[in-house]
Design a protein around this nucleic acid. Structure first.
Lengths: 129, 129
DNA sequence: CTATCTATGTTATATTTTATAACATAAATT
DNA sequence: AATTTATGTTATAAAATATAACATAGATAG
């Protein structure tokens, strides 16, 4: 899914297109940017360029507003989302626990023993790996 | 997949974006249009608006040209493709053969008999459907 | 109830992007 | 050698966008 994500995050749409796709006014779109909710890329000429992900987020904001949630509320929602994302990310890049290490080593040895099952080599053979 | 097709054929990209995504010059893109290879939509202000499908086609044209095929050759390729598409379409909208009708009717009756299997109703029950 | 704030509209001005069209040209074709 | 093809370049006009300021209905606070 890496490539799809890339496509979805490519800033290729000018604000006029975004207005049509979202039915938001330029004023609204720029205001949400001012509120730091959707910050588009800029091209060489300083024109805002939006990605499909930006479109999704704008539509989401529109829904939140229609539900009576105000800017402050929407900001909070995204802050919390960002936190959760950060946690998940931290989890992924956290160093291995001793438990993890033991499990992984055990699995390693299982594989090795499979490879060396009937060739007469013992586990000691793998000290150099 | 209907929705995906729709998205891919939505004309949302201005020529500047297309230039970047394809590495073609505006001159080239417009020339291929003049040659009736890729005819973009126009917005209210007469600006060309391209779809993802248009991008694909432009990249394809670029490849053909790199392979030494000239405009005439490329046009021919697309004409043939269009023919094949038309045939396929014709096949789909062709009226049913007698054979088709018999098969469909048989299947209908199988379903009906399933529904009425153990409720004492005979086939005649379904005359009103 | 009045004052303030929020979210958005409107207008003006400057800059960027695009459209069209004409002229130019290297490379391929005739 | 003349013509055609595919593309570059330049000029001009129109459209889209950026920024910023002023305006305001409705919500919120004092």
């Amino acid at each position: 899914m890496k490539e799809k994500e890339l496509r979805r995050s490519q800033a290729v749409l000018p604000i006029g297109t975004v207005m049509k796709l979202t039915n938001l006014s330029a004023r609204q779109i720029r205001y949400y940017e001012e509120q730091e909710l959707v910050i588009p890329a800029r091209n060489e000429g300083n024109r805002r360029m939006y990605s499909l992900n930006d479109i999704d987020k704008l539509l989401e904001i529109k829904d939140f507003l229609a539900d009576g949630i105000n800017m402050a509320g929407i900001k909070r929602i995204y802050e919390e989302q960002a936190e959760k994302q950060a946690e998940k990310q931290a989890e992924l890049s956290k160093p291995l626990t001793d438990e993890d290490v033991r499990r992984i080593l055990r699995d390693e040895f299982i594989n090795v023993s499979r490879l060396t099952k009937s060739n007469g080599y013992s586990f000691r053979t793998n000290r150099n790996l």
